[in-house]
Each structure stands twice: as C-alpha cells, then as structure tokens.
C-alpha cells in the first residue's frame, strides 16, 4: 500500500485545521448522504495537507465531536477537499445540519493510500456499493485526470445501490458513463418504474460482467456484506488475493494509531489501513 505521510512529529496531532464549507450537495433522494466541499481558511495549510486517494481525515463539528471520513475528492482537484457523509451518528448528523459558510475542523490526512504505484499500467475495476463509492471516487478521478490517465489501462466501474434514489454522485456517473475509455455498469437492487439500467445485487452483476483478471486490479468498497460477496466472486473469477484491494471502516477516535480501538490484530486500520489487499485481510484475524 502507499505509505501514510507523517506530519511534523513536533506538532500537536490533535489540533485541527480550520476549513469553511463552500458547497453542500444533496446526493440521495432520502437526503441521508451529502457531499461537503470545504476550503482551508489558511491556504498555507495545503503545504501540510498533502493527500492521496484512500486517505481519510478526522472531521470536526466543534462542540459535537470528530468523525473519520474518507476524502472523496482527488488530489488532482486542487483548492478544496470533499467529504461525502452519510447521516449516521452525532457528528455526521451535525454535519448534515451545517450549511455553506460553516467552519469545521479537519485533521489529517490519515491512513495509507490506494497502491497507485502498483496499479500503473493495469486495468482497474472499481466495484462500489452505496456510499462506498465515496473513497473510490477519489481514486477514479485521480486515474481519469489528464495528468494520470495515461498511467493506467482500461477502467471499469460497477456500482450499485438499493434504489436509484440511493445512487450517489449521479452527475459524475453520467459523465463517466459517457467516456469511451470507461466501461460502466450501474445497478439497483430491485426493479423500479422508469429505471432502464441493470437490476441486481452488485456481486451478481459483477459475476455477469466477469472482468478478466489478467493485468487487472479490483478495488472495492461498500457495505460489509457486499464486500464479503464481492471478494468471493472475484476469487471465482480468477483474481488472486493480491489483485484485490478494499478499504475498511472502523470506529476511530484519534486517527493516528494511539487510542486503541480500530485494530484488527496488531494492525490499526487508521494507521496501517484503511486500504488493505484481500491477501492482507486473509492473514488478519476476522474481527472487523
């Protein structure tokens, strides 16, 4: 995996950078997922805040608390960060009640990165479910960016949600789907009036689409149950565990491997992850 960059060890690791919400995008019909674009109040923060796809940040709503949230923007998109947030706990709920202009805290970037160096020259298959597309989106936009597109082979995106209303990044899905260098399949769990796309669970659709494992890397994120079936389907399709990359979620507090809760065996998801290959997962205790 790409290694985490360690910030100045002498700095207070709990001090967040201040950032202003500049744009709020409603993603789902149920309004339970929103994307927040934020800009650092002090532009010099960018000198310290250099991230790569796969990393996350501890996002604070002052007076409510912090939550670890994957960075969904790509480092190729400069001048802002984006976080797509599902309304789940206290902090994410408070974020959902925040509007443009609100000042929030951002600590990070934390964790390792998707192994972009190892992916060079390879076909990449993105397999996402629901809000799980958020961390993948950072890598997708990185790979599709003008400066990096040539470094990678074909791109395939298989993305699903419970219903059409639960699909996130709809505008981008349209743009990606329209590109000639991308094969994209979007699916929903159950048939719906007016839906002309595919219907079926992501692992089943993956099996039908049957991407070839030769010279490919599969990157997946979604609900735990989806990931579980995607991993076994990829294995059936001939993908070696080293060719499969996923990113995990855990309850976290510090984000820097100290507070003790996000470990799987001796690995801390916040520090040694959140990105793991399936090979690594197989070697770790099944406690996540």
């Amino acid at each position: 995996m790409g290694q985490a960059t360690i910030r100045d060890a002498g700095a207070n690791p709990y001090m967040p950078e201040l950032a202003t919400i500049t744009q709020v995008t409603r993603e789902t019909d149920a309004n339970d997922v929103k994307t927040f674009r934020v800009e650092f109040r002090d532009p010099s923060t960018w000198e310290r805040f250099r991230y790569m796809p796969g990393q996350f940040a501890e996002v604070s709503v002052f007076g409510v608390g912090e939550a670890p949230i994957s960075i969904t923007s790509s480092p190729t998109q400069q001048g802002y960060l984006e976080f797509s947030v599902k309304k789940m706990g206290q902090v994410t709920t408070a974020l959902h009640y925040s509007s443009e202009g609100t000042v929030i805290g951002v600590r990070g970037p934390y964790g390792n990165t998707f192994p972009v160096a190892d992916m060079q020259g390879k076909n990449i298959i993105f397999i996402g479910g629901g809000i799980g597309l958020a961390p993948l989106r950072s890598l997708i936009n990185y790979v599709l960016s003008d400066e990096h597109r040539g470094e990678f082979g074909r791109v395939q995106i298989i993305y699903g949600a419970r219903s059409s209303g639960d699909l996130v990044f709809k505008g981008e899905l349209e743009r990606w789907g329209a590109r000639a260098d991308i094969d994209q399949v979007v699916t929903i769990d159950r048939p719906e009036a007016g839906w002309s796309g595919r219907v079926g669970f992501v692992p089943a659709v993956l099996k039908e689409v049957a991407p070839r494992p030769e010279g490919a890397v599969a990157v997946t994120c979604g609900p735990p149950i989806m990931i579980k079936f995607v991993l076994s389907t990829l294995t059936e399709l001939g993908f070696a565990p080293e060719q499969v990359v996923t990113t995990l979620e855990m309850r976290m507090k510090c984000g820097i491997g100290k507070c003790g809760r996000c470990n799987i065996g001796s690995k801390y998801v916040c520090r040694d992850g959140p990105v793991f290959t399936y090979r690594q997962l197989l070697e770790m205790p099944q406690e996540y």
């Binding site: 709990y14 912090e66 507090k253 510090c254 003790g260």
Partner: peptide
C-alpha cells in the same frame, strides 16, 4: 493501559 476516547463538550 492507555486506550482513550475523544469527544466534545459544548
């Protein structure tokens, strides 16, 4: 033992 929690009080 050194595990900890972090949270806010308004």
């Amino acid at each position: 033992c050194h595990c900890f929690d972090i949270g806010d009080e308004a």
